[in-house]
């Protein structure tokens, strides 16, 4: 028979949760978004795309927990499906940033000299094009769409990860165990893969979490502007754009989609902070 959980163990767990409360709250909120996204793939309270003009602009009720929009669609269902959209954009855009950015950053740190200079100047330069600006350029030639916003946010992420991984990698390259690895005859590429990358993973994971939050914000903004995800695909930003037209008569329309973005971003930011507390305790000293 397993022993019942003692009071001490419970206290210890509680203490741990209070110490890492950022992580706990962040994980719960992020988990909620992920659950919504997966659940909505198989089930939503109502259809998120079907129009039901007769039940348009209804206040929250037992039937429609968060009410219906100007076309009679169920707001809760739309928000749930919108979570899929935000997650996909976030995952792809951050992956673009991580793969290309970290690759460039590691390359810069390994080669030093003019390669590093060139990569870093390239990063500086890409910084001048925030996601909205790249999205404007891409939309001007290709027309609006979700893929464009993914591309634009992804491009914006490349220098973010290039800078942060190059900085972290440079610090690792000056360590003694790297000297030892060099003395043992390992090449730059092998040292990067075997020693540098594993040691900067925590920095990248933390940045990825925060960049994910920024990506969700950016995607929502682009969809709000009408150059991101296109109807009928539900997206949180698009919902806010629709809601603004009716906001003076039905203010609740503008509350829920915005709250969804806010909670998702808050969750990811807190998760990022929490991960930093756990993975790199030295950094928390100054905060």
């Amino acid at each position: 028979m397993s022993e019942p959980v003692s009071k001490n163990q419970l206290m210890a767990a509680l203490t741990l949760m209070t110490r890492y409360r950022n992580f706990v709250i962040g994980a719960v909120l992020t988990g909620l978004v992920i659950v919504c996204a997966f659940l909505s793939a198989v089930w939503t309270p109502h259809s998120a795309v079907e129009l039901a003009i007769r039940s348009r602009l209804q206040l929250p009720s037992l039937e429609h927990w968060l009410g219906t929009d100007h076309l009679g669609r169920d707001i809760l269902s739309m928000i749930m499906v919108g979570a899929q959209n935000s997650l996909i954009v976030g995952i792809v855009a951050v992956s673009i940033g991580v793969f290309l950015g970290v690759g460039l950053g590691l390359w810069a740190a390994a080669k030093r000299g003019w390669t590093e200079e060139l990569i870093m100047r390239f990063s500086d330069f890409t910084f001048a094009f925030p996601a909205v600006l790249s999205a404007i350029m891409i939309t001007a030639i290709l027309g609006p769409g979700a893929v464009n916003s993914i591309l634009a946010i992804g491009i914006y992420n490349i220098p973010v990860f290039a800078r942060i991984s190059r900085g972290a990698a440079n610090a690792i390259w000056s360590r003694e165990y790297i000297m030892a690895a060099k003395a043992a005859g390992k090449g730059r590429f092998r040292i990067t893969v075997e020693h540098v990358l594993p040691n900067i993973t925590s920095v990248i994971v933390v940045q990825a979490t925060i960049s994910f939050a920024i990506a969700i914000l950016a995607e929502a903004a682009l969809s709000y502007l009408g150059i991101g995800t296109q109807p009928p695909e539900p997206s949180w930003g698009r919902m806010l754009n629709d809601a603004q037209t009716y906001a003076t008569i039905k203010p609740y329309l503008a509350i829920f989609p915005g709250a969804a973005i806010f909670l998702a971003v808050l969750g990811l930011n807190m998760l990022g902070d929490g991960l930093r507390d756990i993975l790199d305790p030295r950094l928390t000293r100054g905060r």
């Binding site: 939050a213 914000l217 929502a220 903004a221 709000y224 930003g237 806010l240 809601a243 603004q244 906001a247 003076t248 203010p251 503008a254 989609p257 915005g258 973005i261 806010f262 909670l263 971003v265 808050l266 930011n269 807190m270």
Partner: peptide, 18 residues
């Protein structure tokens, strides 16, 4: 500040208007 960072500015703008 933790809450402020997470607020989408365009949503906040709509709320201010309302």
């Amino acid at each position: 500040s933790q809450l402020g960072i997470a607020v989408p500015n365009f949503w906040f703008g709509i709320l201010l208007i309302l």
